[in-house]
């Protein structure tokens, strides 16, 4: 079974035309991969469907904008994968 990171990386490659081998756990979706906000919505939709969750993008955006959480917590892919795992676990 593919790891969460591998599934996320495949989704980003499929939706954003980014070569799969350029996507690593350390990649920052925006700063390193150049994913824009619209492309991130496509990625979020694919992640929501793949994992049966709802990424709390509005809450994350607010936390980053208010300086409560560094953007890396949500947009570096190893961290994003960890957040997804937490959401999947919380769903029971």
């Amino acid at each position: 079974m593919a790891s969460t990171f591998e599934t996320v990386a495949d989704i980003i490659a499929d939706t954003s035309d980014i070569p799969r081998d350029q996507i690593t756990p350390e990649s920052h979706a925006i700063d390193d991969l150049g994913v824009d906000s619209l492309a991130f919505l496509d990625i979020a939709f694919a992640i929501d469907k793949a994992f049966g969750i709802k990424l709390p993008l509005e809450q994350w955006t607010q936390e980053v904008n208010e300086g409560k959480v560094p953007a890396e917590q949500y947009f570096v892919l190893k961290n994003l994968s960890a957040r997804i795992d937490e959401l999947v676990a919380a769903k029971g």
């Binding site: 979020a44 939709f45 929501d48 990424l55 993008l57 955006t61």
Partner: peptide, 9 residues
């Protein structure tokens, strides 16, 4: 078909 956070499809 989907209600996301800040978007809908």
């Amino acid at each position: 078909v989907h209600q996301g956070s800040g978007y809908a499809v």
